[in-house]
Amino acid sequence: MPSVRETIENKEVGLIDILDVILDKGVAIKGDLIISIAGVDLVYLDLRVLISSVETLVQSYENNRKDVTSDQFDDERRALVDATGQPNKWTD
């Protein structure tokens, strides 16, 4: 039987778990190692902004994974024809 430790160690960690730690310093970026040792020379990002954008990204990524059926595709094409009023451009 593997120990509790081994079980946890071998468990797969997700992207969010990883981002949670590898951006940890960035979250409290004030007085942080990166900023204080690098000064103006560092190429750094506002990681607080990044975290919120990751939250949005993960969500949109998941929403976009659904497959588009050909019926849906046709519906969308019809909608485009209506919206643009240019039937030649959107029909075969």
Partner: peptide
Amino acid sequence: IPLSFCTIYN
């Protein structure tokens, strides 16, 4: 001492 993701110097 691990550095934060994308710590890059010029």
